[in-house]
Nucleic acid binder design. Structure first.
Length: 399
RNA sequence: GGAGGGGUGGCAGAGUGGCUGAAUGCGCCGGUCUUGAAAACCGGAGCGUCCGCAAGGGCGCCGUGAGUUCAAAUCUCACCCCCUCCGCCA
């Protein structure tokens, strides 16, 4: 969500943002609705002011017949008011829907492009390994060592189901622990978060309403989060933080659930794309300052690079193009690790910042040093996601 | 699953239809006193939004939403959450 005042003053920026993000959004419709809404609200408030004055008089007057006359006139006001209020309710609903669809403004450094194919590499680390034998993929490597059971995974869990066993299971635990270790040293608080969360957390983070197809819904009006970003951002919802407590930094572990609705044919083999996986996520809430956001964006990206470097995996960092950005994201880096069986770098981490797009929806503020209350800025990045990272780990180190 | 109690400002806690945006206490901010502090005393202070250069003013906000009423923190209904007891349970 953006500030309506900002939208009123900068409709062209919104227009450009929608174009760059390849989002279909009509600012002029929002502005028209906003204008109507504002005018109607002014009218309603005027009527209420009158109503309040009359009410006050009624309370004071003793004379019964005079009182009756006032009550009669108040009744008329009431009728007019409720008609206007009904009108307003419809208009406001439309306004809300449009407001939730407004894309955040991408950073000028975000490259033009339709999809991840146009993401731009900004740096590379490590040598891609050369093998003097024919390379196996992670599926056969892990299956041969009895660390992964996809067949029984599907039997039990359905399409994209899996079991990790033995050292495959233990290695996963070790990776989460390593992520907590590295981030703990940098002042991140370790958190185990629920994956089951209320709808408002999904709207707040921008996963809903647009991503409806991607999310599992339970029969109790709760949803399964696709990332710990959802519960962890909701954690401070409706709070006013102290400036001296910023930045707030969390390393959050949670299971992650994704329907993968738009990718039925994609990555159907192995453990790259799953309905259920585990992840340690970095979450940062910082002061409402662009440079502060940029600083932390670089920092959380480097944290993940540090982890990948410790694992000795060749990787590259790309800056995502406009068409590959989420609605709320200002800028995003993906880290892609080398997958020998595909001879490609593939996404393992995703690092983005949002300015106050999420915190405005979630109502997360802080009292700044000047006494003003502002929305904090939010950022997040993967620390490590399993089992996906295992693909590179097994394939790059095969002998 | 059953029975009961409750959600009010940073916190505690009054308030059962108009004089209540809300008593009181604690905490917070400013001042007096003091070498300095504490105590005491005096004063101040909610959030959002709209109009306005400003001073100021309008509207909304007592868990959420709907309703009754000329008028709702206060009455009615639904929902959410918390607490106590019983049952079940990793």
């Amino acid at each position: 969500m953006l500030d309506i005042k900002f939208i009123r003053e900068n409709p062209d920026l919104i227009k450009q943002a929608a174009r760059k993000k390849r989002v279909d959004f009509d600012v002029s419709e929002l502005l028209k609705t906003d204008e109507e809404r504002k005018n109607l609200l002014a009218k309603i408030e005027e009527l209420r002011a009158k109503q309040n004055k009359v009410s006050e008089k009624i309370a004071q007057i003793k004379n019964d017949s005079e009182k009756q006359i006032l009550i009669e006139s108040s009744r008329e006001l009431k009728n007019e008011l409720s008609a206007r209020e009904n009108e307003f309710k419809k208009l406001d609903e439309k306004w809300q829907i449009l407001m939730l669809a407004v894309p955040n403004i991408p950073d000028p450094e975000v490259p033009e492009g339709e999809s991840d194919a146009q993401n731009k590499e900004i740096r590379k680390w490590g040598e891609t390994p050369r093998f003097d034998f024919s390379v196996k993929d992670h599926i056969s490597l892990m299956r041969d060592l009895n660390l992964l059971d996809l067949e029984r995974g599907v039997k039990v869990s359905g399409f994209r189901g899996y079991f990790l066993k033995g050292e495959g299971a233990l290695l996963s635990l070790a990776l989460w622990r390593l992520a907590f270790e590295i981030l703990g040293k940098k002042g991140f608080t370790a958190v185990l978060a629920p994956a089951l969360a209320r709808e408002k957390n999904f709207i707040g983070t921008g996963w809903l309403p647009q991503g409806k197809e991607e999310i599992y819904k339970t029969q109790d009006e709760l949803y399964l989060a696709g990332t710990a970003e959802v519960p962890m951002m909701g954690y401070h919802g409706d709070e006013i933080l102290k400036e001296e407590d910023l930045p707030v930094k969390y390393a959050v572990f949670s299971p992650c659930f994704r329907r993968e609705a738009g990718s039925y044919g994609k990555d159907t083999k192995g453990i790259y794309r799953l309905h259920e996986f585990m992840k340690v996520e970095q979450i940062v809430l910082c002061r409402a300052d662009h440079l502060e956001s940029v600083k932390w964006h670089e920092a959380i990206t480097e944290n993940s690079e540090e982890l990948i470097q410790m694992l000795g995996l060749p990787y590259r960092v790309v800056v995502n193009c406009g068409g590959d950005l989420g609605q709320g994201q200002v800028k995003k880096y993906d880290i892609e690790v080398w997958v020998p069986s595909e001879e490609k770098y593939r996404e393992s981490h995703s690092s983005s910042y949002f300015h106050d797009f999420q915190t405005r929806r979630l109502n997360i503020k802080y009292r700044a040093a000047d006494g003003k209350i502002r929305f904090v800025h939010s950022l997040n990045n993967t620390a490590v996601a399993t089992p996906r990272i295992l693909i590179s780990l097994f394939e790059n180190y095969q002998q």
